[in-house]
Amino acid sequence: MAISKEKVLEDLKQKFSDNILEITAQFGDDIICIKKEALLDIVNFLREEPYAFTMLLDLTCVDYMGEEERFEMVYHLFSLSNKLRLRFKTRLSEDDCKIDSLTPIFKNANWLEREAYDMFGVHFEGHPYLRRLFMYDGFEGHPLRKDYPLHKHQPKIPLRK
């Protein structure tokens, strides 16, 4: 028996009332803003039956430069058996740019988190191998941060001219 979206949200609100800041929806997908300390608990809770959000669709980061809590982590979860989608958002400040890793729960979080680390410099605690994914060793800075210079190049070999 498939569980409804309303039921999932209600259960979440009941169980994690202290850690959920806001629940909104856009284009039919629900957005749940949470505190970052509760991320692992909430994801673990939703992964179990009857919710069965067993698939991590995407994990990424947004840089809102100038705001107090600068980075926003975004997690997309999908439940195959219930055909439901949920989106989690949580804010990180620049000074304390750390969040728990999802690798113990979802295997594909490994590379997704390496990408977020590479591009935004977010540190994932408990990640088994947090190394740059796209950029090369020796690359300085994190290129998708808004304060990375637009035309800054870091060539691996000396350029001509």
């Binding site: 950029m135 290129p143 035309h151 800054k152 190049h153 870091q154 070999i157 350029l159 001509r160 001219k161």
Partner: peptide, 15 residues
Amino acid sequence: YDNYAVVQGIDRIIP
């Protein structure tokens, strides 16, 4: 691609 990742023309590397 005028960005951090892309070489701005291969003549910066080889003739």
